[in-house]
Structures are given as C-alpha cells and as structure tokens.
Design a protein around this nucleic acid. Structure first.
Length: 529
RNA sequence: GGCCGAGUACCCAAGUGGCCUAAGGGAACGGAUUGCAAAUCCGUGAUUCGUGGGUUCAAAUCCCACCUCGGCCUCCA
C-alpha cells in the first residue's frame, strides 16, 4: 500500500503520515468542529468533509484512524470590538433568533425548545448539525452515534481546561492580570508563530480592529490571549480559582484533543481561518502545558469555498446551508462531491452547474454499480444491495472468479488510491474512476469488480447517498405527480400527443423531470437554483 | 505593512521542466434512440496555459516584474 502524503501547514512541505502509535495505527486525528448557535453552511462542511476524505483515504491504505471532532457549545462572544471576552454570548443571541424564527414560521412552532436556555439551543443546533453531517457521510458523526465521546462538547471538559490553566500558570506560561482574567504569555513560548508565520514583530496590533485598549493595558504583551474570563453575569459560567466565569475559546480543543487522543497527535485539521490565531494558540497552550516538542505533527487546512465566483455572504443571497440545498432536491451525494472534488488547498467555487455535473457523474457510477451487482446476483453470489460496503461483497456465498483477468475497476483501484495518496488529488482520482466506467468488459469477475468499485466509493462516499432527502409534504406531491404521469401515459396510448405533451409540460412546471424507460416512466425532482 | 494561496477551453478542474500538438466531467454541436422530448449511448472539442520579459536544447511547469482575485494579522470552516 502506498503511504499517504499531505501538505503540512506547519512546514509548508509534503509529509508522509506515519502514526505515532506505530505502523499499525491508529492515526490520531482531531478536527475543529462547528459552533452550534446556527446551522452549519456549506463552507463549514467543505472543511469537515475534506477531513473526512483524508481519514477515509488513510483507512483505504489499511491504517485505522481515531477521528475526533468537537461540537463547540460555549465561549463565543458577539462583541467584535472586544475579542478578549465580554460582549454578549452568541448562544443568547441565537435564543432570540430562534424566538423570531418561530414567530415568522421559519421553524415549526412545535419545536420544543426553551430559547432562554443556552444548552437547549446548543442541543437544538447540534442535533441539526449531526443530521446534516450524517446525510453527507461525515464518518465521525456516524460513529458518534455509538460512541458519543468522538464528538465531545467543551461544556463537559471545563475541569480539564482548568487543569491546563493551572499547569500553564505553574510553568510560568500564564498569569492572572489585574482585571482578574488569566492570560497566556506569548513571549514565554519561543515557537509562537511557527504555524502561521505571524511573528510577534510582524503582527500589527489591532489590525483586525477587535482588540480593546482596556484589555491591552492589563496584558504583558499585546499578543497574549485569554485562558479564563471571570464574569459572574455571563449566561454560561463555572466556578474556578479565578472566579466564576468561562474559558478562553482556544482552550477547548487543546484539552479535548489531549484527553481523547493524547498530548501529541498525528493530525489536526480546520479551515484556513483557524490557522491564526486559533491553532497557533492551541499549539502554544498544548506544548507548554504538556511540555512536549509538538502538539499535532501534521496540520491540515482547507481553503474557503466561494459561491458562483463570489464570497459567500448572507447579504449577497448566495449563502447556503446543507439543509437549504437538500430542500431544493439536491442529493447529499452531489453536495458531498461538489464541495470535496476541488483540491483542498485551493478556493473551491461552488456552483449550481457544478452540482448538476456531480449528479450526472454519480448517477452514472450508480448505474454501473447496479449493473455489476446484478451480474453478481445472477451468478448466484451474495444478494447484497449494490450499496453495501465492500466487506460484504466477500461474504460466504459469493463466488469470485479468481481466474478471470482483472477488470477496469480492479485496474483503476491502485491508481485511484495513488492519486489520493498524493496530497488528496481528488480530481485525478475521479478521472481514474470515470475512465474505468467508460470501459466495456464482460470477461472480468463481477464480484471483484464490484468490490473494487465500492472500495473507491469508500472514500468518495456517494453511492449510498444518491437519493433526495425526504421532506414533509412529499406524499401529496408524489400523488399529484403520479396522477399526471398516468394521464400522460393514457394519452400516449391513445396517440393523443397534444394531451400527453400538456401533461409533461405541467410536470416540468412542477419541477419534475421524467424519464421514459423500458420499465415505464420514472421521475426525479429537478434541482432548482 | 507582514504572512499565505490562486489565475489552464463556455463552466468546474488535473497536469508543476521533455511521454502536453494539456487528463476527467459538464455545457454546446453532430449521430444513434424517441411520436416529439427527457434520460441513455457514440463522436467532435484548447497548437494553448493572467500579462510582459528571462533561464534552458526543451517551460503551463523554473526565475523576475506587473495585473487580477481570495484568505489571515486576536468572531470566523
């Protein structure tokens, strides 16, 4: 098996993934997950899904991965002018927004949620996130159903964070300032800036316009960042030796990564905007608290997604959440492919056209998978669904023909794997698969072919997700469509083509696309931009 | 001001010194199929890689300058 090589933000070079635990693994992998005071948008999902593609690629090469992704339910303030704490908790704002949404009917009024309870709001959005994530095939979210510890919440890790603060103060890396807050002293850590290249000298104080003079005055260095903020009035607060308050927002990942994966881990991922300050600060805290030469060996960062050539923003109307798109009839498979097929280190341009392109590719792969599976069934093999994972295709009653020559998919698999191993070259991997799809070969062993195809899909993760997400009201809609299709069929039997075309036009105006096949007419809901 | 990416056909997007007269997908066009469509299948498709210089026997790929776009510089995937 080829080794996986990935660009390491820390060194700027391609690095081979060699598990700290030894060749047998597992690779320890921590991903900075979502904050849950609103629905995640497709840009968020691009970075989560790229992490998913990476972990699946490592698994494809035979190395197990222990992947942890947090769900942040604490510690984020709205007050832009004051990044050192204070302002309003975003959960409180989210609560007000929820009340508004209920009033305006954007959310079903029967959603039972106390908008004044920050934890209820966090749970509400966390559950919506998990729904979207599972539909999109984010493996860690699927695994977390049986092992919730894989998706930890910072509110359950406060004591570990306080332990880290204690360590940092004892080792001389942190101090309690005159305003009562605990700060990390960036000058105490020589490597501060190693990840982002933002040396302390080059950081322009207040360039982002989010630092208040008041807080700067009590800090030893302008770059010092908060570890604990005493604030007895805050909506979420915990007791601590520094007064009741809440933790700094960088601390959670350091504490949870160490607690669940170890003081040193193999891979840490996030969006490019996390590089500084978040990940820089995590490195400083973790290395200083645990006295280790490194925190994560490899830093994996996904660049931002733009939409139709423009930065995604609510005001431009090009802001999409996954569920927005599912409601338009976009399949999870198409969305997953569209936002992961562009190399993770370039800005991806999300377009409705691109979504349609992906859907066509996936439909073709699905047809081929089904045809292969039909051959397997016909030869008395396993009666597994075409969507079953590759392991099941080698079940006891399948009969692979070991004498048959390697077919196009079996030949493609190592090339596909190689492409992904070279810094996740998705475009080339997809091209390899498409080339295999175009080859007609009836002499190959269908069992082995279907296994190879599903092996490739174990990374792409699209075949089992190529169906629309059902929405409420679908039943009535379906009945209406089926009635129109019957009207059209009757008209066609009578050769009344004017009438049949009228029925078809009506279906089209309902957003339905029909296909006349050998087994009658089938339909799909067209995706509307 | 500092740091970091990107500009390849109508669109998305590989390729990073010779196998490139540039992969793959979509759109478009032509053909098969169809009552007509849609879907499907087959075929066609950049002598050229943001602009201008340079290095080299050889450049989309290396160097320099410039233009354009995006990210970060203590909310952000």
């Amino acid at each position: 098996m080829p080794a996986v090589h990935i660009h390491n933000t820390l060194t700027g070079e391609l690095a081979e993934i060699k598990p700290i635990a030894g060749a047998a693994g597992p690779v320890t992998f921590y991903t900075c997950g979502p904050t849950v005071y609103d629905d995640a948008h497709i840009g968020n999902f691009r970075s989560f899904l790229n992490a998913d593609i990476l972990r699946r690629t490592i698994e494809l090469t035979g190395t197990p991965v222990r992947h942890v992704m947090n769900i942040t339910d604490v510690g984020h303030m709205t007050d832009d002018t004051n990044a050192d704490g204070g302002g309003e908790d975003k959960m409180a704002v989210a609560g007000r927004r929820l009340i508004e949404a209920k009033k305006s009917g954007k959310i079903h009024a029967d959603v039972a949620i106390d908008a004044n309870d920050p934890m209820a709001i966090a749970d509400f959005y966390a559950n919506r996130f998990l729904e979207d994530a599972r539909l999109l095939g984010l493996k860690v979210a699927i695994e977390a159903q049986s092992d919730p510890s894989l998706m930890p919440r910072p509110t359950k890790w406060i004591s570990q964070m306080l332990d880290m603060i204690k360590q940092l103060i004892e080792r001389g890396h942190a101090y309690v300032a005159s305003d009562g807050a605990v700060y990390f002293n960036v000058k105490s850590f020589a490597d501060y800036g190693e990840l982002s290249g933002n040396t302390l000298e080059n950081l322009r104080e207040g360039e982002g316009g989010r630092i208040s003079a008041q807080h700067q005055a009590v800090k030893k260095n302008p770059g010092d960042f908060m570890l604990w903020k005493p604030d007895p009035h805050h909506v979420l607060k915990w007791d601590s030796p520094y007064g009741a308050g809440y933790p700094g927002w960088h601390l959670e990942c350091s504490a949870m990564a160490a607690g669940l994966l170890g003081a040193e881990i193999d891979i840490h991922s996030g969006g490019e905007d996390n590089i500084f300050p978040h990940h820089e600060c995590e490195i400083a805290q973790s290395r200083c608290a645990h006295n280790k030469p490194s925190f994560a060996r490899l830093w994996f960062h996904t660049r931002h997604l733009i939409v139709e050539g423009e930065k995604m923003s609510k005001s431009k109307g090009n802001f999409f959440t996954a569920r927005d798109l599912f409601a338009k009839g976009v399949t999870p498979a198409a969305l997953r492919l569209e936002i992961t097929r562009t190399h993770y280190r370039t800005n991806a341009n999300f377009t409705m056209q691109g979504l349609a392109d992906c859907q066509r590719m996936i439909d073709r792969w699905s047809r081929v998978a089904e045809a292969l599976q039909a051959k397997v069934s016909a030869s008395g093999g396993a009666q597994n669904s075409a969507y079953a994972n590759s392991a099941s295709t080698t079940s006891a009653n399948s009969k692979p023909n070991h004498g048959a020559p390697a077919g196009p998919f079996e030949i493609a698999l190592p090339r596909f794997t190689q492409a992904l191993c070279e810094d996740l070259n998705m475009a080339r991997a997809i091209a390899v698969l498409n080339e295999a799809v175009a080859v007609e070969d009836n002499s190959a062993c269908a069992h082995r072919e279907v296994a190879a195809l599903h092996k490739m899909d174990s990374v792409l993760g699209v075949l089992e997700r190529n169906k629309r997400v059902a929405a409420s009201g679908d039943g009535d809609f379906e009945a209406k469509v089926n009635a129109l299709i019957e009207v059209r069929a009757a008209a066609r039997r009578n050769k009344d083509f004017a009438a049949s075309d009228r029925a078809r036009d009506e279906l089209v105006s309902l957003g339905v696309q029909i296909k006349d096949g050998a087994a009658g007419t089938t339909w799909t809901r067209a995706v509307r931009g």
